[in-house]
Simulated scan of single mutants.
Amino acid sequence: MEQDGRPRGNRAGGASGASALGATDAQAVEALARGGLVILPTETVYGLAADAGNAAAVVAIFEAKGRPRFNPLIAHVADAVEAEAIAVFDARARALAEAFWPGPLTIVAPVRDRNRVCDLARAGLDSVAVRVPGHLRARGVISAFGKPVVAPSANRSGRPSPTTFADALEETGFAAADAVDGGPCAVGVESTVVSVLDGRVALLRPGSVTRADIEAVVGPLERGGEGHRSPGRAAVHYAPDAPVRINAMAAGEGEILLGFGPGVGALRWSLSPTGDLREAAANLFRMLREADRETPAGIAVSPVPGHGLGEAINDRLKRAAGFVG
């Protein structure tokens, strides 16, 4: 399975075969065409997908997730040509697309076609968030469908995002007309989001395409940015039921410690025994879920370095803990 999650030249693919709900890719396309919801794998996390232009289908996503209506959704398309059919790209947006697509980068740009991504999906904004996923099977379904697909993470709003097919079914399988099993997600955290608006490029949400990766293509990023144009920016987000405590040196009474690095905590609960940030990102949401199933008094998480991919990991942990740093 070609799923390495690399930010450049990503060609991540999914496992073949029917899902537990008996879905084939063709059946998933048919379900989308009927206005149904489909659990769809990507290289980042599993998504709950629907026709981006079908307001009723988008409403069904919000209802299934319990998601705030003001939170915009990302339109997933098969290629950069389709992206420019719905968004207005300048030279820097095109440079980013060329460098990182297919892959885990979302570009927020002025909307071109308001019908193909409905107002509700865009949260009424004059911009649209768009990406070309790196998962081959996801792109195959989207290409066969022939329209943009919104696919927010297939979790109930505020919960850890699902990175396995089983977790996606547990979270929102009740609402899905079909589901595609693409194997474990290679990246494990949601896509990086950058805005390219009014000649300025700003990082709205960190991810596996790092700040340094982006600046190598377009130069220094603007500080700040309009965070409301990006999904996943709520102060409390990605949270399990148990309270999360970050930058913990040890577990408190009744807590499970998610360690990071050599000799920190129990091996079962280590995000990465070797201190590898990509391994930690891939394990993060799965381990939060597994620890939560043990009904601990809390989940403590060891310090994770903030450089590179660590910026995205710490962003998710801060939101899981209930604050934005």
Results as ranks from 00 to 15, higher is better:
R139E: 08
G103F: 10
A50W: 14
G146C: 10
S127L: 12
A83Q: 02
D167V: 03
R122I: 05
A138Q: 09
A91R: 10
P104T: 00
R131M: 04
L136S: 15
A85V: 13
G36N: 04
I142L: 01
V117S: 13
A52R: 06
G36L: 06
P133M: 07
R116S: 01
S157W: 15
R112E: 15
P110C: 11
P152G: 12
E43V: 07
V77T: 11
G146N: 02
R69S: 13
P152M: 08
G35M: 11
D51M: 12
A33T: 12
A31Y: 13
E63Y: 11
H76W: 04
A99N: 02
N54W: 09
R112W: 14
V77H: 03
G146W: 12
H135E: 04
P104N: 08
L96Y: 11
G103Q: 05
E170I: 05
A154F: 04
R92V: 13
N115G: 11
V149T: 04
V88E: 13
A97K: 14
G124C: 13
G53S: 05
V88N: 12
V141G: 00
A85E: 15
T44N: 02
A49E: 08
I86S: 08
A138R: 04
A87P: 10
S127G: 13
L40S: 08
A52Q: 06
E30F: 15
A154S: 02
A138P: 03
A123N: 09
P160Y: 03
D79F: 05
T163P: 12
G103H: 12
P41R: 07
T163N: 00
E171S: 06
L73H: 11
I107Y: 13
V38C: 03
N155L: 05
P41F: 12
H76V: 05
S161H: 08
V45I: 06
A123K: 09
G66F: 08
A52G: 06
D113C: 07
A129M: 08
L105V: 09
A64F: 07
L48I: 09
A129W: 07
L169C: 07
G103T: 05
V141I: 14
G124L: 07
A91K: 13
G158S: 14
P148W: 02
A83N: 09
V45S: 06
V88G: 13
A83L: 02
V111G: 08
A168Q: 02
A56Q: 14
R137M: 01
I142A: 00
L48H: 04
A64E: 10
P152Y: 09
R92D: 15
A56N: 10
V77R: 04
W101S: 01
R131K: 01
N54A: 00
A85Y: 03
V132W: 03
P152C: 03
P110L: 01
V108L: 09
E171Y: 06
Y46S: 07
F100S: 07
A166C: 07
P133A: 07
V88W: 10
P72N: 07
N115I: 15
D126W: 11
V81E: 14
A52I: 06
R116N: 01
A154W: 03
C118Q: 07
I86H: 03
